[in-house]
């Protein structure tokens, strides 16, 4: 098996007195697409925020052999993590092009940035058409495309996606799937958070299931799709 890129041990996230994540362990290997599924309020977003240092976590986070613990978010980003937050986090009053440039904020290779922006426009022609428009005028699906394209502008080693299909029409959800699959096929390691377990399991190599701040199940995605409990709880069967 490939080298472990991310290893998390005993991760806890709390908001004041509310324990959102209660000591979870998981890992993601280089090149893997791993999903984290669970109902609303299970602690999935809190887990990602803890990884990115947006909330102060407890426990051990190792990324590419280095401890991320207590680093500021921008320093974590500099080490090769990127996150597409829940609700997309588009800069609505910046243009589409400026949003993409923000994704490359820490890069100094102008030519490389220009090439990557061109590539993003090839991949998402809607963004190309709207490059000079304020990002706030895009549709939900287009904003999600932009959010993913923007995160990729940082050339991350590990991409965290928080419910990228949330609130999107089925056709758009499909397009997002394809995008995630194609990013993964380029060798980018992905940790995908979803409530939509069908979609997530279909895309992923492995999966973790989270409930009330703890991990309740984990395994190969194909196996989990056959798991009776999981089917009952998350696949509506």
């Amino acid at each position: 098996m490939a080298m472990t890129l991310l290893r998390v041990q005993g991760l806890c996230v709390a908001y004041g007195g509310i324990q959102a994540v209660r000591g979870i362990d998981f890992e993601v290997a280089e090149g893997e697409l791993v999903c984290l599924i669970g109902a609303n309020g299970a602690g999935k977003s809190s887990t990602l925020k803890g990884l990115m240092g947006l909330v102060r976590p407890q426990g051990e986070i190792w990324f590419a052999g280095e401890r991320l613990h207590r680093l500021a978010t921008h320093a974590i980003v500099a080490r090769g993590l990127a996150m597409v937050p829940e609700g997309r986090g588009i800069f609505g009053r910046l243009t589409v092009a400026e949003n993409l440039e923000m994704g490359a904020y820490l890069r100094r290779d102008r030519d490389g940035i220009r090439a990557d922006i061109a590539r993003a426009y090839d991949l998402f022609e809607r963004l190309a058409e709207r490059r000079g428009q304020l990002a706030g005028t895009l549709s939900g699906g287009e904003q999600q495309m932009l959010a993913i394209a923007r995160a990729m502008m940082g050339r991350p080693r590990l991409l965290l996606l928080d419910e990228p299909s949330m609130g999107l029409a089925p056709l758009m959800v499909q397009k997002i799937h394809q995008t995630i699959a194609s990013i993964a096929s380029e060798g980018v390691t992905i940790l995908l958070v979803e409530q939509n377990a069908h979609m997530a399991l279909a895309l992923s190599h492995r999966a973790y299931v989270m409930e009330s701040g703890v991990m309740t199940l984990s395994g190969a995605a194909a196996e989990l799709r056959g798991n009776a409990d999981l089917r009952a709880a998350y696949l509506g069967e």
Binding site: L54, A72, V77, A78, A82, M83, M102, Y105, G154
Partner: peptide, 8 residues
């Protein structure tokens, strides 16, 4: 928050 996520 999102600006930090861009590395700012």
């Amino acid at each position: 928050e999102v600006a930090e996520l861009m590395g700012v």
